[in-house]
Amino acid sequence: MMKNSYKALFFITLISGTLITISSTSWFGAWMGLEINLLSFIPLMMSTNNLFSSEASLKYFLTQALASSILLFSVIFFFLLSNWSSFNLINYSNLLISSSLLLKSGAAPFHFWFPSVMEGLTWNNSMILMTWQKIAPLMLVSYCMNLYFFYMVIVLSVIMGSLGGLNQTSLRKLMAFSSINHLGWMIAGMLNSENLWMTYFLFYSFLSITIVFLFSNFKIFNINQMFSFFNSSSHVKFFLFIPLLSLGGLPPFLGFLPKWLIIESLINLNLQFILFLMVCFTLITLFFYLRICYSAFLLNHNENNWNFESFYFSKNFFSCLFLSFISITGLILINLIYWII
């Protein structure tokens, strides 16, 4: 009971740190919110059931502390230079601020820590790291746009997120590289408007939560576990693993909608070459999404005599089905609502 109360307290502090950063009117206030967020997430990462949690929390702390120190130095440097009116030096300071925030969010080429930290976490903590922990850094990144630098970050994030997941068998590392790929799309949405990347982030968070909820309930951590999962009901596997294709942005599923909006915005900004690279390398992510749900889509295969029918009528099973149904039919429902309005 005491342990759960401490977790609830740290979780409330985690949320408070993010809200302080978002609502802050100064860089020092934003830095303070990021530090509160960091120090409240470290205890949540520690788990007695996971041997690698200590290593993951140490890597996360060192990386985030390095990024925070660079951010604080850059902000002080920025205020000192603002009195000298040195345009080039102010640009360098802005570049340092953007780099430290991208390091905090795990975007390429500052992504070196993200997959290894994800590998040492539980699914619930991985979900927090992939979704909530990106809100504050990305919100601050949208305040200091440097176009040519961001073009490089977008292309590298999409490339690293796609190619990095090809030789992985751990699902947590696959989701980490997938998150890096989606970060490239979110930053591309920032080039047009703030609402666009927020819309993409909401859809990405919903789909990630759906998939993590599925993996967490069935204790799936590696690809080879898929081939022994739900051997008695292929159509149920097919229905549950469709959200993976939705996360990859395959039409007509819900995940295609935010990618569609960003594709239109990049065409309007005449960034067709960057868009071409993003679409091509995102197709590679669809390959390892298909590899994850490969056994689910092979409907004609040998099945074991035992099954998990007792689980089919549990609350967690129907929750998975409900989230998958929204992911599959979401784009159709949105188009119907738009047509009615």
Rank of each mutant, 00 (worst) to 15 (best):
L244Q: 07
F256L: 13
N270E: 10
F297Y: 12
Y338I: 15
L101E: 05
I332Q: 14
F215C: 10
W339M: 15
S232P: 06
F73H: 04
L333C: 13
N88I: 13
L250R: 06
M139N: 10
I42A: 02
S157P: 07
L171S: 07
F288Y: 07
N91F: 14
N302I: 00
Q64D: 07
F150Y: 14
S208N: 12
V117C: 15
F213N: 11
W306N: 12
M118K: 05
A296F: 05
L129S: 06
L269C: 01
I97R: 03
M130D: 00
L72M: 12
S324Y: 05
K7L: 08
L156S: 11
N224A: 03
I70D: 12
F213I: 06
N4K: 09
S142T: 00
A56V: 07
S314A: 10
V75R: 12
F28V: 14
Y143L: 11
F201G: 07
L62S: 07
N37V: 04
Q168M: 07
N167A: 01
S86W: 15
L9K: 11
M145L: 14
F73L: 11
S40V: 00
L290A: 07
I292W: 09
F239D: 01
F229D: 04
Q64H: 11
K173C: 04
I15M: 08
N88H: 12
A108M: 02
G184P: 06
M152E: 05
K259Q: 01
N270C: 08
F78H: 04
F149T: 06
L171V: 09
T13K: 03
T122I: 00
G106K: 02
L96M: 12
A107Y: 01
L202H: 06
S82G: 05
N91G: 12
P137T: 13
V75N: 13
M118Y: 10
H301V: 03
L71S: 02
S57M: 11
N335A: 11
